[in-house]
Design a protein around this nucleic acid. Sequence first.
DNA 1: TTGAAAGCGCTAACAT
DNA 2: ATGTTAGCGCTTTCAA
Lengths: 351, 351
Amino acid sequence: MIEGTPATSPTTDADAAPGRPTLEAVARVAGVSRATVSRVINGSPRVSPDVLAVVEQAIAELNYVPNRAARSLVARATMSIALVVPEDAHRFFGDPYFADVVQGISDRLDESDYVLNLQLTHPSSPSEKTRRYLLGGNVDGALVVSHHSGDHFLASLGRSLPVVFGGRPLGELAHPGDYYVDVDNRSGARHGVEHLVARGRRAIATITGPADMPASVDRELGWRDALAAAGLSDHRLARGDFTEAGGIRAALALVDEHPELDAIFVASDLMASGVLLALEERGLSVPGDVAVVGFDDSPYATRGKVGLTTVAQPAQEMGVVMADTLLRLLGGETPPRVTTLDTHLVVRDSA
Amino acid sequence: MIEGTPATSPTTDADAAPGRPTLEAVARVAGVSRATVSRVINGSPRVSPDVLAVVEQAIAELNYVPNRAARSLVARATMSIALVVPEDAHRFFGDPYFADVVQGISDRLDESDYVLNLQLTHPSSPSEKTRRYLLGGNVDGALVVSHHSGDHFLASLGRSLPVVFGGRPLGELAHPGDYYVDVDNRSGARHGVEHLVARGRRAIATITGPADMPASVDRELGWRDALAAAGLSDHRLARGDFTEAGGIRAALALVDEHPELDAIFVASDLMASGVLLALEERGLSVPGDVAVVGFDDSPYATRGKVGLTTVAQPAQEMGVVMADTLLRLLGGETPPRVTTLDTHLVVRDSA
DNA sequence: TTGAAAGCGCTAACAT
DNA sequence: ATGTTAGCGCTTTCAA
């Protein structure tokens, strides 16, 4: 089905098979042994310049491409890694953060010989097929990208396979040997809140994400850190769910219960976007009445009328580092088990 | 080699290798030949019930999983298909439409033995690596998901490999033999505009997408169809870019240039979301002053204060059908070259 | 119905 | 520096 044009066939053999050229065909054309061709392909230094030229010529001529399966079989490596996404598709694809992470992963992998196998799985329990796939030696390693990490199978996957997590695995699901790259959510949040304090705000509330997500927990901790350091009260808290609608609900609840609040630190830009809507609804000006600081520096930060001051996290770099860490692991190196990426504050209008 | 825990080893051989069990190991345990085990694995009917039971028992006992590479080598099939995404990552991941398509693809593929290789490429020219990958026999087929399809390499990919496109390849880039699944953008748009007409609107403008996207072109055509049928003028048109900001700009330009307009048919919900913002900015009420109909029925349709009346397209089904078509192609069947999915109008507040 | 044997395309000792 | 030779784990004729 993938017939190419026969083009040039310098050999005298009568057997010209129709399929893709094999290493053996190259060897024949170049007039050398298969081992030599193999050496050329794998960049061995033990090849004389002239032979190398001849072989490369033959390769080009035949448009030869090594057969991955054959190579994998003998090398006992699949040269492919899994991108495990234990999230609802909308959740995942709708989040600019993931877009950046995946782009970073893809970019880094482009420089390698590995390919990416996409595994969309149910958040709380990967399918039997996925499990078998991951454990069945079909990939050399895996990258797990998710906010959740609430699943035991994935949490323990690192014991059977080289795995790098995006974001710190949470609590009991974390294993001492886990590799992961995370952003410094806690200090990022702290800086965001400190900015609020520096702006003279004193009644600073927060809207967190779900309690089962490490990022939520850490950002909440950072909020408390800053308040404690400034001697401020940390009793104004509402829990959101990282959606815009959730942000609206939480903000409404917050202003109703704590009418005195003069600032809100929101754990994500998407929720902050909802907060802005809710505040407008209540006739509260931003940053006049209430200052708002978000988290992510996603496209949502600049979507509304008032630019969102937010804590930027290097999502794409996160992807790059994740891929890089796994690649080094697969290469037999010993990369750092934990990499923590820095955040930085982006000041716009809202605070 | 150092012996691990012997566990169960009914054989008398002294050579227990430590790696994953091979088919041969299963054969030994079951006391049959490798050929028989192979038959069992591949569901051959030529196996007696008792032997089958014994072999299955052995497989379960050893937790045997066939080696993909070995299988691919002999079967001359990789059992993997490429998901080619010639879009900017943000564009792609930020679009709920793609989320659904990919989910659909993934769902359908989960029922097969194929895995998905993610290929993020530059919209206008896939990297050399991607080209070699796709053409080098590394995948059995490819699924191209994009709004664009402005690239020649991808457009002609179908000649070297079974390929199914998501969305009709445009104009000169289309090849007679191409397989694709598309939604009926033209009639969908027409119905949307007809709804506007039925609501008594007469000065109906449109905001289109980029001219190089088939979906844009078709929706514009549908808009014209409806206007022509109603004897209305089709001179109120602004070109957008399928982004929210673009929708805002286009809407602003439209109301300034055609203050008399009483309705806008917008080629995507995301842009329509921007349109709603722009209209509010100008103090125009929806649907009071201006009625708005979007396209997609994405989450954006219900995000704002006023629910968006929109033309729903079955994005997830599109993914399923794409995958299904490719699978049938790979299976030697002859599925329809073109599948056109229906749209339907979802009436909310905006029109 | 079952087994024996011959590869699929490649790499990696081991010779030379 | 280059060639020879064994497989990697599986499927598949061909016999029995």
